[in-house]
Every structure is written in C-alpha cells, then in structure tokens.
Amino acid sequence: MTSTTPVRVLIVGAGAVGTWLAYRFARAGHQVTVVGRPRYVQAVQERGLGLIEAGEGETASFVREVQAVADLATLQGQSFDLVALTMKAYDVDAAVEELSRLGIRFRWPLVLIQNGVGVEEMVSEKLWRGAALCLCATRAMTQVEPALVRMDSPRGGVVLAPTAPGQPVEEVAALFREAGFQNVRTHDDHRSVRWSKLLLNLVGGAQSAILDCTPPQMYRDRRLVALTLESMQEAIAVMRRLGVRPIPLPSYPAHLFVFLAEVLPAWLAQPIILRLVARGRGAKVPAIQQDLMRGKKRLEVEVMNGAVSSYGKQAGVPTPVNDVLYRTLSGIARGDIPWDEFRGKPERLLAAVEARRKELAAAPRGGGPFRALWRWLAYQMGISKTW
C-alpha cells in the first residue's frame, strides 16, 4: 500500500503494458479503472489482474481491486488524476477524440506510452500544448492471456519526459516509484527519449515481419544485419539534422548505439549492437510482426521506419532503407503487396533497397569514421553544441 493518498488512475488500452501499469497501481492501493475488450473485462471480473515476475516460472500474483469496463462511454464526465494511453500509436488519435467528446477530465497531463515518434506532437495539436507527458518503457513483457502479463526480463525501466515547460514530471515519476515500478528516470527532452527508443525498435523488427522470420534467423544473414545497421544510421542522420540528442535508456545505451554505428567498422559494430539488443529481446517475435500475423491493416511501422522516412524527407536526409521497409511492410499489411513476394526472400528485399538507392542517387554519408569520432568527442567535451 502506498504511503500517499490514493489517486484515481485510468488505463486506456489493455494490452501487456496496460495490464502491467494497472496491476502495479492497483497493488499500491490506487483506484484503478481499465478499459479493455469484453474478454479482458470478464477476466478481470473473474480473477483480477495478474502478473508473473521474471524468473518466477508460471507463478502469478493477482489483484482484484480493479474496475474494468469495455466502453469508455461508461466513464463519461468523470475525473481522474492520471490517465495513461497504452494502445498502439495509430489508435491514439481516436482515443484522444473520445476522451474529449465524453468530457473525461484529468489532473495531470495524459501519459502516452507508445513506440515510435510524433505521437506527443499529434496530441498537443489536437488538445493543447502540454496536454501530454512522454513515457518510455524498456521492460520486456508478454500478455499470456487477457489480464495476465509475464515480465520476460528483470532488466529495463521507465523514463518520463515533459512535452512543455512546467509539467509535473517529477511528481508523476514519484507516483510510479511509490507504486513499485523499478528504475524510474526523468529526462528534460521527450524527443531524445522517443528517438533513442526508436533506435532500439529499428533493430530487425520491420525486416523480420517482411521476411516472416525470427530475429535470430535474420541475424544469421550478414546482409540483413548490415541493412539493420543502415536503417539505424539513417535515423541517426535525421536525429542530428533535427538536433535531437541520443540518451541512455534503462538497460539500452542508445547513445552507445550511435557511437558504435558511426565510428566502428560495420563488421565490428554489428555484433555488439545485436548483442545489446538481444539481451532484452532474445528470440521473441517483434510486436510489429505479431500484428502482421494477426492480419492488422495498420502497423507501428508508420511511426518507426515511416517516421524516419518522413522526417528525413523534411530535413533533406536520404533514407532509402527506411523508405523501403516502411512502404513494403505497410503495403503487405494493407494487402497491396502479397506477403509471399517477400516471405523468406531476403534477395527481394535487398534488391528493393538497392533500387531505392539508385532512385535517390544518394551520395555517401560524408565524413568517414575519423570525422564521426571527432564530432562525437567534441560534443561530449562541450567544444561543439551539435553532435
């Protein structure tokens, strides 16, 4: 039980992350309401929310002091202290509209917990500047069944960041710490948080989905590993043009990824980066691939590889690898491109990327490793304000 006064918490989006948040806050004695599908609501009503800690086999702990509803409309006009949106990025727009239409009020800014970049900006445009807080979670977890989540690793943590001056980031972070969340940090720039997590998300996800293979299978093909490194290098180039600094996240040193990808030769950087990522992900099928297998028409690739492509175009940075990954995976999801054209055919994907490179007539990334090393050191020592 928390030592502070219980607060009213609303979790919209009852997947693995939503269940994890709801469980922790309910366990700490807060008044938690979760919005989920009918099967989820039924599971909560029958046995409560369950969580299996990493390393504890299949032994689950349950908390029953939770309200679960299948329709957000049942909460019309109500007020909450904390509202967290945990659905996929492409569903946030509709959720925000529904919250506004129903007159659901919140004391602290909306807490957004999505992969990819650009969601906070969208919410700020739709509501008001400072309407949202950024939350990045680097804990690996799996939804075993409705309302039961398993933590796959003890590593990782949570990072909260403001989207406007004066937001109560430390106050919200304190609430998370008191509720039992481990390794809770804050940072002053939500863009650095989102783009740093994006570098992790870019490692293999879209390629595994397009080729319908597991990450370990993909990592055995050096050509595909090189493609992954190139997609990261494109994102890093866009970050630099936008003035977004990479930062270390709990268990994922994104700033080190940047150093390795830019300074070390590819044959040395690739295995180190993959080892760092695999430490948390293992052989787990990426969420974006799972969604494609379920037949979903929209995927998080829009705010991942698609964001790199879009921001790159705006900033004048060529992004041929991310262009192809985004267009191909989106096309497969919509049904415009038969999945069998790429399933198990890495040569087909590599050829598409090469064609895009020629189309852009992209010049080599200038500077070389020595200039990249100097740029990094100059920034770290304060000699240069841009990295």
Rank of each mutant, 00 (worst) to 15 (best):
G243D: 06
A287F: 05
Q290S: 08
V225Q: 14
E145M: 07
W387R: 15
I236M: 11
L202N: 05
A362N: 02
E302Y: 05
R177G: 01
G130M: 10
T319V: 04
T59S: 11
Q233W: 02
E302S: 07
C134D: 02
M141F: 11
A283I: 02
S251F: 11
E171K: 13
G18N: 09
S100E: 15
V83D: 05
T4A: 15
R298W: 14
E53G: 06
V44M: 08
E230S: 12
A333I: 02
L329Y: 02
F181R: 09
V41L: 06
P253N: 13
K345L: 04
S61G: 09
L21T: 00
M239T: 02
A179G: 04
S251M: 07
L127R: 13
A378C: 11
V303F: 11
V193R: 05
M1N: 04
C134I: 03
G18C: 03
S231T: 05
L127W: 15
W374D: 00
A140M: 12
S124C: 15
N183A: 13
K358D: 00
Q45M: 07
L276C: 07
S61Y: 08
T328S: 03
V117F: 11
G57D: 06
V193L: 02
R281V: 12
Q167K: 05
R177Q: 09
W108L: 10
A161Q: 03
S3Y: 09
V69T: 10
D291P: 08
G55I: 06
W195H: 02
P369H: 10
L249V: 01
Y40G: 01
S208Q: 09
P146F: 09
A54L: 03
P38Y: 14
P286A: 12
G103N: 14
V159W: 04
L135E: 04
A266K: 14
A140N: 08
E300Y: 06
L325N: 03
L211V: 05
R177I: 03
W108S: 11
L373C: 04
G29F: 12
I247Y: 09
M151Y: 04
G282H: 13
A137P: 00
L299R: 04
D91E: 10
F80D: 03
W387F: 13
